[in-house]
């Protein structure tokens, strides 16, 4: 019992940290073509995420791996039911990785332009797709004893799309703040402006999301049972307001941390509402995938817990250290990427 709950919490944490970290890479990738006006600035944006994006993406791999090891049935059904959506996610992640690494390795305007488009798509599509996927997980999938009764189009329902847009906007603000924090001169100014501007779209979308969630999902049922959980969405809303307050003042580091808190708390809000489901069924509640009916054996969960307790803190420590090494603003236009 207790191990399933531990892994449910860890599962939520892995996703939250992934969104918090790779979220700004996605945001920077989406904004790249709009806030960087010349080749030097474009390189700067790439160099700003360059040292860390690889390590950030591994949180996704680990979230996937943890799902496999701790909840194999959920992993198997989720990945096969959402086959085409995940295929698109894979293709866009491949595109992004290759774009970042290859863009600077040859000359020519056409070469660079091509990779710029790939970088945009490879950042925008994962943000959107992950949002759509999580919106549908929150709302539940049409599954019963016979399996899954949906397709890619089923996922593109209004609530799924709304969540997708929410993710895109969250990451846009997040990425803009990161570029403002790390960039200098005009780039910093434009990124700051972008963060402030996009926030005005994010706020109403987030408000609609919170209200629509009451109708489209059963997430709030847990909040009725345990009102203390309401602290999670409350912190999310408070941090979202703080983002604007701080970035308006130009305090980009604090604004960025507020944005981190927003993303983490939005994720937790959804995950806490799901409990004990990992993927609810919206046609036959008995066929929901829960942390109890889809988990690994207690033996496996115990071993994985030991591994996580030892190694996840080590990972966090050396990642923080690397972030500290690169804590300074990025000098403009260097040729590393």
């Amino acid at each position: 019992m207790i191990f399933q709950v531990i892994w449910f919490i860890l599962w939520g944490v892995l996703w939250a940290v992934f969104f918090m970290l790779d979220g700004f890479d996605f945001g920077a990738g989406m904004l790249h073509g709009f806030i960087a006006k010349n080749e030097a600035e474009k390189r700067t944006v790439l160099n700003i995420i360059g040292p860390v994006w690889n390590g950030n993406e591994v949180w996704l791999i680990t979230a996937g791996g943890a799902t496999f090891a701790a909840f194999p049935t959920t992993y198997a059904l989720m990945f096969s039911y959402l086959y085409t959506a995940l295929l698109l996610l894979l293709f866009s992640l491949i595109l992004r990785g290759v774009a970042i690494e290859f863009r600077g390795k040859a000359e020519g305007a056409g070469w660079r332009k091509g990779w710029d488009v790939a970088f945009f798509l490879g950042s925008f599509l994962p943000a959107l797709l992950l949002g759509v996927a999580f919106g549908n997980i929150f709302a539940g999938l049409p599954m019963d004893a016979e399996g899954y009764h949906g397709s890619l189009l089923t996922l593109l329902n209004p609530y799924g799309l709304l969540t997708g847009i929410l993710f895109v906007l969250l990451f846009l603000v997040h990425g803009a703040l990161w570029v403002a924090l790390k960039g200098t001169g005009d780039l910093e100014m434009r990124a700051g402006k972008a963060a402030n501007g996009i926030w005005y779209i994010l706020l109403p979308v987030a408000a609609v999301f919170l209200v629509y969630t009451a109708f489209a999902t059963k997430l709030y049922a847990n909040y009725m049972k345990a009102p203390a959980l309401l602290a999670l969405p409350a912190i999310a809303v408070f941090s979202l307001l703080a983002v604007k307050f701080l970035s308006f003042k130009g305090a980009y580091l604090k604004a960025f941390f507020a944005s981190c808190a927003t993303i983490v708390m939005v994720t937790f809000t959804g995950v806490a509402g799901l409990y004990p489901n990992l993927i609810p069924s919206n046609i036959s509640p008995a066929h929901s995938l829960t942390i109890f009916n889809s988990s690994s054996s207690v033996y496996t969960l115990r071993i994985m817990t030991a591994v996580a307790v030892v190694f996840v803190p080590i990972v966090i420590l050396y990642q923080i250290w690397v972030y500290r090494v690169f804590r300074h603003k990025e000098a403009a236009g260097k040729e590393t990427y």
Binding site: V58, I61, T62, G64, G65, A66, F68, A69, A70, P72, T73, Y75, A76, S296, S297, T300, I303, M304, V307, A308, F311, V312, V315
Partner: peptide
Amino acid sequence: VGDVFGAPLAIEATV
């Protein structure tokens, strides 16, 4: 086989 096979994959990512 996820109960056995998932563990080394998850450990690979973490470690």
